[in-house]
Amino acid sequence: MNIHAEDPIIEVHDLTVSYSQKPVLWGIDLSLPKGSLVGIVGPNGAGKSTLIKAIMDLVPLSSGYVKLFDTQLDNVREKISYVPQRESVDWDFPASVYDVVMMGRYGKLGLFKRPRQADREVVQESMRLVGMEAFKNRQISQLSGGQQQRVFLARALAQQAEVYFMDEPFAGVDAATEKAIVELLRRMSKEGKTVVVVHHDLQSVAKYFDWLILLNMRLVASGPTVDVFKEELLQEAYGGKLTILSEVGDLLTKGRFPSREKTV
């Protein structure tokens, strides 16, 4: 099942990615609507991270093409932001929370220019939004996992972008941080920002996202969560992992996944 968005902000056409001749994504074709909160779900090795990296041109494409804002990535870089996996950097790096969040402004600054008052205000506001103001001068090596994740979020916010790609922002964070992050993402999507999140936990999928991409090397489904979060599609994406599926099935029948409107 593949529902295309009208007037899409992200379009992926016939995308194939391979690592040393071994394909990890096959013929992906999808489009995403503006202002949606999109979850990318699938089993381990399904190519979830690879998909967002391919959209952002971080990995070479074997075939296909990507359009953002109906144009090429290079024309709209300042509108794109990225929250990488927390483990992708060395947190012992000698930098403070403020230093890392300020990196979000580097793209707009260019060579030679030092950050100005306006940039400092944006950084301050971004730290406030994720509740990290108090840790402004704390060294990043002294942060907990949840705080590190919030610093990465603040850095992305400081970019003041239109589209955000996030690679497992809930991995290894505590429940309180997860809740705070989800609320922030909802607010962003209400303000018309498009947020694409690689997500691991099936239990919370229906609660968090209003658009869902089910992936298992090929595209299993893409569309509004209400249409996509169905047992047969999940079955298709997760293959024989019945234990998870029967659990999800139970949850579905018990109706413990209310639609998003009810929870907000």
């Binding site: 952002m56 300042e78 932001s81 990488p84 992708s88 790096f93 990196m103 580097y106 793209g107």
Partner: peptide, 22 residues
């Protein structure tokens, strides 16, 4: 002095640097 920001960011987090066009 000229490339302080770029060197700092590409050293800390090269993939993020690539996203923002460095």
């Amino acid at each position: 002095f000229i490339g302080y920001k770029e060197l700092f960011l590409t050293t800390f987090d090269p993939s993020y640097a690539a996203i923002i066009g460095i």
